[in-house]
C-alpha cells in the first residue's frame, strides 16, 4: 500500500472531513474530538488516516502546534467607538 502524507491545518482537516463525512459535524465538536485524541495520545503530531482510498494510505499530518493554535479563542474585532 502506498503512503501519501500531507501536512494540514486544523481548518483544512475539518474541511476535508466535512466533505467526506455523511453526518455533519460542527467545528467545535471536531476540535473537541481532536483534543480528546490528543489527550489520549499526546503526540507531537496527529496522523489522520483517510481510510477511503483502497490502495493509498492517505495521511493528513497535524502538528501539535496547529492544535494549540486552533484552541486560541477567536479574536473578536474591537467594538467600534461611538
Amino acid at each position: 500500500m502506498r503512503e501519501v502524507i500531507k501536512q494540514v491545518t486544523v481548518k483544512e482537516l475539518y474541511d476535508i472531513l466535512q466533505a467526506k463525512s455523511k453526518k455533519p459535524v460542527s467545528r467545535e465538536d471536531f476540535l473537541f474530538q481532536l483534543m480528546n485524541s490528543f489527550l489520549l495520545s499526546p503526540a507531537l503530531e496527529l496522523r489522520f488516516h483517510d481510510r477511503e482510498k483502497a490502495n493509498i494510505d492517505l495521511i493528513y499530518v497535524l502538528k501539535h502546534s496547529e492544535i494549540a493554535n486552533a484552541l486560541e479563542p477567536e479574536q473578536k474585532p474591537p467594538a467600534p467607538r461611538s
Binding site: 472531513l17 467526506k20 463525512s21 455523511k22 453526518k23 485524541s37 490528543f38 489520549l40 495520545s41 499526546p42 503526540a43 507531537l44 503530531e45 496527529l46 496522523r47 489522520f48 488516516h49 483517510d50 481510510r51 499530518v61 501539535h64
Partner: peptide, 12 residues
C-alpha cells in the same frame, strides 16, 4: 508528549 505520531481516523 509522545515523540512519535498518534494515529487517528474518522469513524463515520
Amino acid at each position: 508528549l509522545l515523540e512519535g505520531p498518534a494515529d487517528i481516523f474518522w469513524d463515520d
